[in-house]
Amino acid sequence: MSQPRGPLRPEQQHELVRQIGAVLTGQVPPGWRQLRVEYRAAGRHIEADLLVTAPDGLPRTLPPHPEAVRLLGVLRAGMYQPGLGTWLGAVLVFDPGGPADADFGRPDLEPPFRHQPPPIGFQDELRFFPRADEQIPGWLRERAGLPTPAPAPQPLLGPDEKVRTPRVHDGLDASGRPLIRRPPLVPAEIERVLAYLEAAPVILASRSNGADVFAPERTDAVPMNFRTDGAWAWPGAVGYYLREHGVPPDPDLVAHIRARRFAAPSEVSAEATVLALAAITGERQ
């Protein structure tokens, strides 16, 4: 693999995204509601998942067409910035008749690989897409076998920031059943998100469990506890509904977990605990 000749212009990037959508559209049956492709790469290690929302509204996974995978690689190489590198993970969402929604991860973020690439993959990444030393994040240094500096401490919330709490669902329908209107997680992310949700410290807990709103016959199933990572505080229901019913967490919380590279803290400060409890109970600080 050779280094790209030069960066793609925005219009060239948009054209490649359009071509990727055209290739994927051609491989699925008519009537699809949404196509979501996730691409992850490190050097020559490449992973790609395609999630197709069928006419019945149910998501199904397919291997994306090889040409779409090739074009994604061309797009990644063409978005390389000298000294900064390029993204290692991207998600493209296509809706019928609408513009594509493309989310390219920052070059410092590690994507949720299904299988951890070998060190040579990350070494090749730095060889194919060279970075200035200060632009190599700690996780990439470690994966490539480079000396890893001491991690920087997590910054505290700013004076005007508050601990956030997620929406467990998106409202109720006319019959009182919960509504879910949010993008599904790709299969490779589910266990990593669950691990994060269930690893953060518990700051409030009840001895009993609550009822399952998606399966009312389960009257003693949902954990009645709250966890926090210092920036978000969430009820045990978030992880429970993801594991039991495939309900994706609040998209903002998912974005936060991705930004943290799926690494939850094992403990938080007393100050962060107080702020999280205030967010849960609605008390002013």
Rank of each mutant, 00 (worst) to 15 (best):
G282I: 07
P184C: 06
A221G: 04
T86R: 05
A272F: 11
V37K: 01
D49E: 15
P64F: 08
R260Y: 05
G145T: 14
L35S: 04
A233G: 10
D170P: 01
P151L: 11
A205H: 11
R261L: 11
Y39S: 01
P216G: 07
D250W: 01
Q116V: 10
Q13P: 00
V268A: 02
S269E: 05
D56T: 03
S2V: 12
Q135S: 10
A200Q: 01
G282P: 03
L185F: 13
G138S: 11
V69H: 03
D56Q: 05
H245K: 02
P117H: 06
Q27C: 01
Y80K: 02
G89K: 04
Y241R: 01
P117I: 14
R167L: 10
R243K: 15
R106Y: 02
E271T: 14
H45C: 04
T61P: 03
R9F: 13
L204Q: 13
G236K: 02
V163S: 07
D101V: 08
R40N: 11
R60P: 05
R284C: 01
A42Q: 06
G43Q: 03
A279E: 02
F226H: 15
L194M: 00
Y241M: 07
L204G: 02
E244D: 09
L109R: 13
G97Q: 11
L277Y: 04
P82F: 13
R192P: 03
L204T: 07
F104P: 00
S175A: 12
A221T: 06
R40K: 08
F94T: 12
T61F: 12
F122S: 00
L204W: 03
G230K: 03
P137W: 06
D160Q: 14
D220T: 12
P117C: 00
I120H: 13
F122L: 06
D103K: 09
P111W: 02
D170M: 05
V69D: 06
P147I: 12
P30S: 07
L50M: 04
P137A: 06
G83Y: 09
T281Y: 06
V254I: 07
V69I: 15
P149T: 14
P59Q: 08
A41F: 07
R60V: 15
E67W: 06
E271L: 15
N209K: 15
E217N: 11
P107W: 04
V37F: 03
A188V: 14
T61E: 13
V52C: 12
E11N: 00
V69E: 05
R258M: 04
V274C: 05
A100C: 06
A144D: 06
T273E: 13
P112I: 03
D95K: 10
S269A: 10
S208H: 13
R60G: 09
E191C: 00
F122Q: 07
R207H: 14
E67K: 13
Q12D: 09
G26Q: 05
V247A: 00
P30A: 07
Q12W: 08
A90L: 10
N209E: 14
P96L: 09
L275V: 00
E198Y: 09
T25K: 06
E217L: 03
L172C: 01
R9S: 13
A68K: 05
E271R: 11
G89F: 07
H256L: 02
E189H: 08
G121F: 05
P235C: 11
E67D: 10
E191M: 07
S266T: 15
R18V: 01
A255N: 06
R182D: 10
R218D: 15
D173G: 12
A270Y: 12
